[in-house]
């Protein structure tokens, strides 16, 4: 088995799939839905396909959905034409049978070892990009994973974090073992957090420049374009899927680009390079291939350059390039309190 060049790790619920689990009713509905009823976020399918198509690219899906849903979730991914190399789900039935009710909701004690074992279970990739959302603790877990595999978190510290995350003793043992075995390296290049709850992006500044909160998958595509993981044509395909969904218009995509620029997560030169490449695609594409229901390429390029011009070179918000090391115990405690508050307010 040859080592992949780049691994893309995806969460499913609220990252790829538009899943509601704010109430018990939502949870039940999500559990009984069939594959065709499940909805992916506009652009996510094209993005996943484009990433998987890259040479040496590997897609690993690690979700907190119960493993009993594997058949329906796999069927949904097949329906969408999404191929994957690994698909890990949470064995909640086992947790229930063992009376480990805390583990049903726990995120860190489930996802962190799953990520570490995934990295340890196949030839290590020199680069990884992780996709999650703001509904759970994905930002914390992904940054912790990145720091653990980079060797920046001693095992004793990791043990304290796991204890703060209310992990059962055997989960702590399993995670520490996986951390020891996982091939080391500063490999996590990018963490993309889908702002499903529309959390303020500034709340993620403490995680540093590697993490980019995004409102939609066009923004994710722009970040990966700047990271040289997607080309302009692939970005356009993602944009077209979003326009096709009728939930997005060209103006909204152009605003998405401008929003990233204002947050200093996509620089002006990249925006102009993209617009130039889109114009070049327009010239090379016969008019007969254009879809009449979608905006022409040159109109797309113009919308992007207009949004850049509207800022008139205003200085973007500085994003901390080297923030202080993260205090994961405090972050886990904070997340725990936040989740408890949400439950009190009537959310699952």
């Amino acid at each position: 088995m040859t080592a992949p060049r780049h691994v893309f790790r995806w969460d499913l619920d609220k990252t790829y799939l538009r899943t509601e689990f704010d109430s018990l009713g939502d949870l039940v509905k999500s559990a009984i839905e069939n594959a065709a009823d499940k909805q992916a976020y506009p652009g996510a399918t094209s993005l996943l396909r484009a990433l998987r198509a890259g040479e040496g690219h590997r897609v690993c899906i690690i979700s907190g959905s119960p493993s009993q849903m594997r058949t329906v979730l796999a069927a949904k991914l097949r329906l969408d034409g999404v191929e994957f190399d690994e698909f890990v789900l949470k064995n909640n039935l086992k947790n229930i049978l063992r009376g480990r009710f805390r583990a049903l909701r726990a995120q860190v004690p489930y996802k962190l070892p799953a990520l570490l074992e995934s990295r340890g279970g196949s030839p290590p990739a020199p680069a990884e990009t992780l996709f999650g959302d703001d509904a759970e603790a994905d930002a914390i877990i992904y940054c912790l994973y990145a720091d653990v595999v980079a060797g920046r978190v001693p095992l004793a510290d990791l043990e304290r974090v796991l204890a703060a995350a209310r992990a059962y003793p055997d989960e702590i043992t399993r995670t520490l073992r996986a951390a020891e075995r996982a091939p080391k390296g500063d490999v996590v290049r990018r963490v993309i957090i889908h702002l499903d709850r529309r959390s303020p992006p500034a709340g993620f500044r403490r995680f540093g420049p590697r993490l980019v909160p995004v409102y939609n998958y066009f923004q994710a595509a722009l970040v990966l374009y700047a990271d040289r993981l997607l080309d302009a044509r692939q970005v356009l395909f993602i944009a077209f899927e979003m326009l096709d969904s009728r939930q997005y218009q060209l103006a909204i995509l152009a605003n998405s680009l401008q929003d990233l620029m204002r947050r200093n997560r996509f620089v002006q030169d990249e925006a102009l390079r993209l617009a130039d490449e889109v114009r070049a695609i327009a010239l090379a594409t016969p008019a007969t291939l254009a879809r009449p229901d979608l905006p022409p390429f040159d109109e797309i390029a113009r919308a992007f350059t207009d949004r850049v011009r509207e800022l008139k070179g205003a200085r973007p918000l500085p994003w901390p390039t080297s923030p202080p090391p993260l205090d994961y115990v405090a972050l886990v405690d904070e997340e725990h309190l936040h989740r408890r508050d949400r439950r009190r307010r009537g959310h699952a």
Binding site: R198, P201, A251, L253, N255, S256, Q258, R262
Partner: peptide, 15 residues
């Protein structure tokens, strides 16, 4: 804007 809950794709800034 980044300190506020909002939909960044629906807000455009004109200097």
């Amino acid at each position: 804007l980044p300190s506020l809950r909002h939909d960044g794709a629906r807000v455009r800034v004109h200097h």
